[in-house]
Amino acid sequence: MSFREKMLWVAFIAMIGGFGFYFLTLLTPIGQNASPDYYLGLLFFIIGLTIGSMLVATLILFIRNRSEVTFKEDERDRNIHKAATQIAYYPLLLGVWGSGALFHNGVSTSIMLNILLAVLVGAESIRLGYQIFLYRQA
């Protein structure tokens, strides 16, 4: 497995784990009755934890794969990146338009922001997941 692929796994797991925890917490009774400040605090905590865990994992991978770190993205990497970005674009587009429709139907701003965040995290997870899938395939 290449350094680039390992980095994708780290980003994918950190994103699914971190934001998965955030959204699951929002669905619990505590999360549903919490104030917007609680959401915001939790969100910043999760973002900090996600970035922190990614930095630690990146550092470990950097030390263990020093020879591969300087490799530039080649044509296969670029093709895979492009294909995954194209796939992730459609759920992002649908999600944003869907969120806009919900907003016009009276959904509160805090729920709206969480839906937009979920759309963004979902699209990014699809992009990372599809990149990993393509690396495994070819």
Binding site: R4, R76, D77, A138
Partner: peptide, 16 residues
Amino acid sequence: VGVTRQTIAAIEQSKY
């Protein structure tokens, strides 16, 4: 060639 080892492996195996 200017590509990674993984790309050469994928070309060799007719996967890319």
